[in-house]
Every structure is written in structure tokens, then in C-alpha cells.
Amino acid sequence: MKPFIAFTKKEMLEYSRSYKIFIFLILFAILGMLSPLSAVFMDDILENFMPKGVKIEITDPTNLDSWMQFFKNGTQTGLMIMVILFSGMMAKEYEKSTLINMVTKGLSRKTVVLSKFTAALILWTVSYWLCFLITLAYTKYYFPDGKTANLGLAVFSLYVFGIMLIAVLLLGAVTFKNVYGPLLLTGGFTLILFLVNIFPKAAEWNPLQLANSNMRVVQGILKLSDLKYSLLTAAIVVAVSLVSSLKIFDRKGL
């Protein structure tokens, strides 16, 4: 346990020295503010872009618009940035052979992989929930009487989707010794999820549901019972990715 904590601390120190913590926090805080802001502003923006004389019916923005922006920004921008920022998590260690010293001095390879995962998880957790809290605060401020159903579940499922991407990214990072391998693997994995989504029967099990049906959860159309298989699949993907990362890393030359 002690080496695990020490190595995780070292990882966090590295994220702080490479300004990644700083970037993550500021970026996700900005994303959190942009969602309610664009919901509030959408009317004015549309009005300005319309040619004179053209009238369009715009309903007043509601808190749901704000959450729609949150889930759109969160999935598209937030997850993408997270994946890109984490893509080099192993490449640098391989490239500079920085792990050789530690592993030959007795640090177990499992610890390395698990610490990498934990550190990424901590950073994702803190910045994601920070983003959520900021959006929540502003949405409550601008739309005081807006109601949502199952907001917690919607936010949590996107969080789980993020964890799953980190696990897949880690598998890629351990397997390929460069920055592009993990990116391609994660991209390919997401693409497969989209392809699987074509079949209606598989959609229920598809973890993609966690990232693209959040609005239906917020509106109360979907419930936990509709998402439970997706959550289960996501958990399985995380477990399989972690175990294979451990196995593959055991046999990799440093």
C-alpha cells in the first residue's frame, strides 16, 4: 500500500508540474460557466443572426437548456480534452525510460499501472464535479424554479463514461509506446460503441447510453432501470481494461 500511495503522489506532483491540474481545473470551470451562459444568451444570439423581418418563435430558455449545454459540452469538449491530456500518461515514461530505476529497485509493475489509473481518476473526478457544481449553481441562480428529474443519475452516468474512457486509454497507453496509440484505441472504441448503437437491442447494454441519453434522464423519460445494463457494461469494460493493462505491462520492456 505504501508504494502505491507514494507513486500516486508522485503522479499528482507530475500533473501539477506539467500544469495539467491547472489546465484541467480552469478548463472545466470555464465549461461549467459556459453551459448556463449559452442557455441564457441563446435567444439574443439567434435574434442577432436572423435577417431583419424574419421572425422565429423562440421559447424562453429554461434550466433544461442549460443542462443540455452541460451534457453537450461535457461529452464533446470535456471528454475529448481529458483524453488528449491523458494520452501521454505512459509514453513519456517509455520514451525516457524513467520507470526502469523504480522497477529494478523493487516497485511492482502493478503499482505503476494502478497509480497511473488512480491519479487520472482523481483529476477527472475533481474537475468533472467542479464543472457540475458550477453549472448547478448558475442554473439555480438564473432559472430558480426549473425542475429536473434524476439529475444525479444523468450526471453520474456521464462521470462513469469518463472513467471507462480513462481505463481504455490506460490500456492503450500501456500497450503502445507512443501518444497516438492510446488516442486511436480510445477513438476506435468510441466508434465501435456508435456502431453497436445501430442495433436497438444492443443499445440497452451499450455504455454509449451513459453519454448520449443524459437529457432523456433529466427529463424523466429514462430511469435507473433503463441504464443499469449500460452501467454494468461500463464497469466490465473498466475491469477488463485494468486487468489486461496489468497483464500486458508485466511483459513489456521498459
Binding site: Y19, F22, I26, M33, L34, P36, L37, V40, F41, D44
Partner: peptide, 23 residues
């Protein structure tokens, strides 16, 4: 009047961008 209403969200947003730039 509108911009006063949006100030509580725009001000922090601009501050964060400024912090990012200055760092």
C-alpha cells in the same frame, strides 16, 4: 440592464481566461 444581469457569470469567466493567459 441585460449586461448587468449577466455580470455574475461573465466576470468570473473573463477572470479565468485572464488567469490562464497571464500564467
Amino acid at each position: 440592464k441585460d449586461s448587468m444581469e449577466y455580470l455574475p457569470i461573465i466576470l468570473p469567466l473573463l477572470t479565468l481566461q485572464l488567469v490562464l493567459m497571464i500564467t
